[in-house]
Design a protein around this nucleic acid. Structure first.
Lengths: 132, 132
DNA sequence: TTAAGTGCAAAGGCTTTGCAGCATA
DNA sequence: TATGCTGCAAAGCCTTTGCACTTAA
């Protein structure tokens, strides 16, 4: 494996991602990073997000938005629920997804490496707003 | 409902989408449209894709790519399998997905309007290439 | 006739890249 | 010291928008 220097910027970005405990987009990650290191640049954010992804440290998710969300990879697989009203993103786990994957594996010649699932809808608050 | 003139461009774009029987991105849709009408512009493609989406005629899918795929809406729900080797996109249906949705509905306060699921992996051909 | 759509070109928004200087190992 | 990273600014891409002209109804 190639040597990768541990720079201050990398440490900072990973710390923020870990602290965030959830999906951040590049812009938000940058915003938080600048608070601690005003000299950090957007290019560094993007370059390191790509690196982290390559190293398997973070997951990149495109929740039907223009930009991506990034989050520290965790041991348990989880999926997302996106509220179309307020944009809130909620995570959930679902053993039933495994069944879907198995079903597809049986019926196709694909080697499945990743399942991307997200559900769109309205959370309780936004649902009520729409009804009134 | 608002009056919507049926323009030549709209007819052409819908025809292409219908013929395609699957996911096209804006660029490819434009490429095919230009063959029949060299004067059509990319702006028209985008404007009409938005319109079709709004009218519920097409579905917009972001299969973890920079751009979106568009496809004519069909009666049966289906999902996508994307090969990370060659980029091929294969559609599949899965009743098991319904179970996942029901599960989430029961466990959350969300009103779910749409499920986005796609699986990534390697098709048989690409799998073999990787192994050799 | 007239409201709506189209083409063109320019601008937007997110992301990538070239390059010179800087930092890690 | 040498390879690799950073900041900056410019460029790339996909998508949207302003405006004058054209078209469907």
């Amino acid at each position: 494996m190639k040597e990768r220097p541990v720079t201050l910027q990398r440490r900072l970005l990973l710390d923020i991602l870990r602290e965030a405990q959830g999906h951040l987009d590049a812009r938000e990650l940058y915003r938080r990073a600048v608070e601690k290191d005003p000299r950090i640049s957007m290019a560094t954010v993007y370059r390191n997000l790509h690196l982290f992804k390559e190293l398997g440290l973070v997951d990149e998710r495109r929740l039907n938005k223009v930009y991506c969300y990034y989050e520290i990879k965790r041991s348990t697989e989880h999926y997302h629920l996106v509220c179309q009203g307020c944009g809130r993103v909620i995570e959930f786990e679902s053993p039933a997804v495994t069944k879907v994957i198995d079903e597809v594996k049986r019926n196709s010649d694909f080697d499945i490496t990743r399942a991307v699932l997200y559900l769109e809808g309205y959370c309780r608050m936004c649902k009520e707003k729409v009804e009134n």
